[in-house]
Simulated assay, not measured.
Amino acid sequence: MTPADEIKQAATRLRELATAASTDGRDKPTTRWHFKKCDNRGYLYAENPTGPGVRITPSTPANPGMWPRHGDYIATMDPTVGLALADWLDSWTGIDLRDDGPLPEDAQHALTVARALLGQPAPTQWYRTSGFDQHDDYREDTP
């Protein structure tokens, strides 16, 4: 599979997931999400522009919702972000990307995102860190 194929496959997968997450089981629109803190945990809610929203995190007395840091992050990465990211990945369609030579930096990022979405390891020679990974020797800011 070429890098272009991987990017296209990831865009398709992400669009499917984001589209599915855009409605609840009763076809109510749930595209925008928000997190509501309750004590030291909280719940993820999907907004419904045509009526009441829906809580999309299950809870039980033994498992009351999720940690706020996780809920805030998930709500930020709602289906609108997923669809925009899928569009960005799709923008690489038709561009000849190959493994047998260096890729432009922006194509490297697209391939890294695509591989992460597909559950594949990132190409370590292109890996960029946010400060908590195991590939510190590939960081640009390393002296």
Rank of each mutant, 00 (worst) to 15 (best):
P58Y: 07
R13S: 13
R26I: 10
L118V: 08
F35W: 05
W88G: 05
A21T: 00
A21H: 04
D72H: 15
T112R: 04
P58C: 13
G53Q: 10
G82M: 03
G82K: 02
W126E: 01
P58W: 13
D24H: 04
H70W: 12
R13P: 02
D96S: 05
Q134L: 11
D100E: 03
R26F: 15
L83I: 11
Q120G: 05
G101C: 13
G53E: 08
V81D: 07
Y73Q: 13
G71W: 07
A86I: 04
N63C: 14
H135Q: 08
Q125L: 11
Q120N: 11
E105D: 14
A75T: 07
G25H: 05
R26C: 09
T30C: 14
A21N: 14
L83F: 02
A122H: 09
G25T: 02
G71P: 03
R55V: 14
D133T: 10
G42M: 02
Y73C: 13
T57G: 04
R55M: 15
R115W: 06
L118H: 11
P64M: 10
R98M: 04
A75R: 13
D39T: 03
G53F: 12
T30H: 06
H34I: 04
G82Q: 01
D87K: 09
D133Y: 12
P52D: 12
P104T: 00
Y73V: 08
L111A: 01
G94R: 01
T57F: 09
A18C: 11
L118S: 05
D100Q: 02
L44C: 05
R55D: 06
T76C: 12
Q134K: 06
N48D: 08
T124V: 12
D39C: 07
P64A: 07
Q108C: 08
T50Y: 15
Y73K: 13
A110M: 01
A122D: 01
T76W: 15
T124E: 13
D136W: 09
D78C: 14
E105M: 07
D136A: 14
A46V: 03
S59C: 08
L97S: 09
L103Q: 03
P52G: 08
G94I: 02
P29Q: 06
G119C: 02
G119Y: 01
T112P: 08
Y138G: 12
H34F: 15
A84M: 06
D72Q: 09
G25L: 10
D99Q: 08
D87S: 02
D27G: 01
G71I: 02
D24P: 13
T23V: 15
P29S: 01
Q134M: 10
G119S: 08
E105T: 12
D106H: 05
G25S: 09
D87A: 10
W33Q: 04
P102L: 06
Q108L: 06
P104W: 07
L118Q: 00
A114Y: 06
L97M: 02
G53W: 09
R15L: 14
T80P: 07
V113M: 10
P49V: 10
